[in-house]
Amino acid sequence: MATAIKKKKSLVKNLVRFSVNGTAVELEIGTLPHQVETAHTLAHTLRETLGLVGTKVTCDNGACGSCTVLMDGKAVLSCMTLTVECQGRSITTIEGLADPETGRLDPLQQSFIDHTAFQCGFCTPGMIMSAKALLADNPSPTEADVKEALSGNFCRCISHYQVLRAVMATAQGGE
């Protein structure tokens, strides 16, 4: 078996390239501390390798939505995504929403502030990313659309009601 493993290793690409918040990222694949291991999740890489700790990990098992990021515009769970499989992808995290030039918050972020759409705030980045994916796809969602888009996001404080208001207020034709 050992030879088989060795043989297979040659198939492994030793670099993975993708973009995070518009910035190209090139990471070596390997087992040294600065490298990305094959078993690293995108959540781990974002937080531990790239220092983007705005993406939160709650269940680390695909059930709660806290670690939601955008991959090519779609909401995905970064805890269930292998970094080595992100080759060529475009990732957006909570750190990528505010205007990089002016620092101006995304309207969705501003609306979350205006509606106090959080309590402990731990689930908030994931909520905002799920809502962001929805609004990019459907700028004028109904309340039912918002609930559906956020249905995979856990919040234990019950910020849901204020979040719904915040998202609806941001949506075109919202309040």
């Binding site: 695909g62 939601t68 909401a75 799920s130 888009a149 995979g152």
Partner: peptide, 9 residues
């Protein structure tokens, strides 16, 4: 099945 994020992948 599951949630929007799961169905996306």
């Amino acid at each position: 099945v599951a949630s929007p994020q799961i169905r996306n992948v």
